[in-house]
Write a protein that binds this DNA or RNA. Structure first.
Lengths: 264, 264
DNA sequence: GCCGTACACA
DNA sequence: TGTGTACGGC
């Protein structure tokens, strides 16, 4: 028996909007700790990890660990039917091959339940080691989103370079080149507007903008984004979910040889 | 000689936006009573009935009963040229094969007249008997609109079931099932937010969501919608037009045999 | 009050 | 398919 009641249902709506374009089918894992998901994107290049801790739910009952395979597109369709102020409850009976999403309007006048069939999905749950990163950049999520969008109109890849002074995003394409530098800036009115750089060692890594632009769909979840970089390690783009957890996206850097190969 | 002056011209604009997708050509009937229309939709499944009572016009002159065949798409195009605050006057001379729409801006600085050719249309004016309905549901039009839109992302048809406690909208599709229950609720701040159920007998009827979604285009005309249901009778979805009349949509329920046939 | 998204039209 | 407009969210 599983019953998870989330008062701020819009969070779950936003989570699904942010991952459904990247991942078609995935297992949601439910345990005493929380409600989580880990999945590779359909082209097996990027990885998504979601955690919604049990403490963030108004009611959290999960009798035993369970893994529920869902088509994220269909799940997103159903969640779109919930109002932004609705309370969402996720229910599943033991041994059932369906999951039920229940939506309660704030006034309780309207109660909806949507039932969806579960699927069997080969889960390739990777242990993601906690790593030390050469540099961690925190900046407003809207700004990172804008930069990735802007650069993708010039080129396909971005070089992210971090120095103590700031973070530089560079691209190059047929029509020209572009560099955007964001300086460390902690003297702002609101802490979420700050750009903060923690750096042990300068890094410079290249990524496909296509994936970064997909990651930024999660911007509505948080005002800030954290980008953790190390040479030879996948970048981690993390959006914290208030009081509950996070959505993290992992993407391996393009290595120089790759870049050369793809040049005409 | 016909001359109908409507101060709140936006009403006529909204009326046309709400019916033009359903009906291509129709006769507008003008008499001392008012300005009315009755027409089947192009696939002869749904029926629209419009009434704008003469008392609702600032000036209403209709020397003799007249029926004017119009292409509603073209009429809507012309009415779109009226500002939302414009006063609209509909004019037709006796024996003329054209109708003129005159738009006066509130300041009288701009006066436009649009002339449209009338058409001969076989009018199949049905007498619609006043019926007793098993159940009449009144609810906010925006809520009904949202429900029909949400359910159509899951299935093609909706079962509307009324009990004393509330009204339930159910559908079923490839990706799962959905049920939305709206409880009777009269204890709201504003009367137009209420959901009121008058029920003599429980009913449960099936309708094509495609048509209901078309009907909800009339939502801008009224904050509330009235849904009248009886087994074996077409449902009536009515939007009242303040001080003037109504737009009513009729749709025959799908009978069970139909449903079975469409199953694979 | 402004922005972004969603639907309607050409 | 691309644009313009209307509505809802921040």
């Amino acid at each position: 028996m599983l019953e998870l009641r989330l008062v701020q249902g819009s969070l779950l709506k936003k989570v699904l909007e942010s991952v459904k374009d990247l991942v078609n089918d995935a297992n949601f894992d439910c345990s005493a700790t929380g409600f989580s998901l880990q999945a590779m994107d359909s082209s097996h290049v990027a990885l998504v990890a979601l955690l919604l801790r049990s403490e963030g739910f108004e009611h959290y009952r999960c009798d035993r660990n369970i893994s529920m395979g869902m088509n994220l597109g269909n799940m997103a369709k159903m969640l779109k039917c919930a109002g932004n102020d609705d309370i969402i409850t996720i229910k599943a009976d033991d041994g059932s091959d369906t999951v039920t999403f229940m939506f309660e309007s704030p006034t309780q006048d309207k109660i909806a339940d949507f039932e969806m069939k579960l699927m069997d999905i080969d889960s390739e749950h990777l242990g993601i080691p906690e790593a030390e990163y050469h540099a961690i950049v925190r900046m407003p999520s809207a700004e990172f989103c804008r930069i990735c969008k802007d650069l993708s109109s010039i080129g396909d890849t971005v070089v992210i370079s971090v120095t103590k002074e700031g973070v530089k995003f560079s691209t190059r394409g047929d029509i020209g080149t572009a560099n955007i530098v964001c300086r460390q800036n902690t003297t702002v009115d609101k802490p979420e507007e700050a750009t903060v750089i923690e750096m042990n060692e300068p890094v410079s890594l290249t990524f496909a903008l296509r994936y970064l632009n997909s990651f930024t769909k999660a911007s509505p979840l948080s005002n800030t984004v954290t980008i953790s970089l190390s040479s030879e390690l996948p970048v981690v783009v993390e959006y914290k979910i208030a009081e509950m957890g996070y959505v993290r996206f992992y993407l391996a850097p393009k290595i120089e040889e790759d870049e050369e190969e793809t040049k005409p």
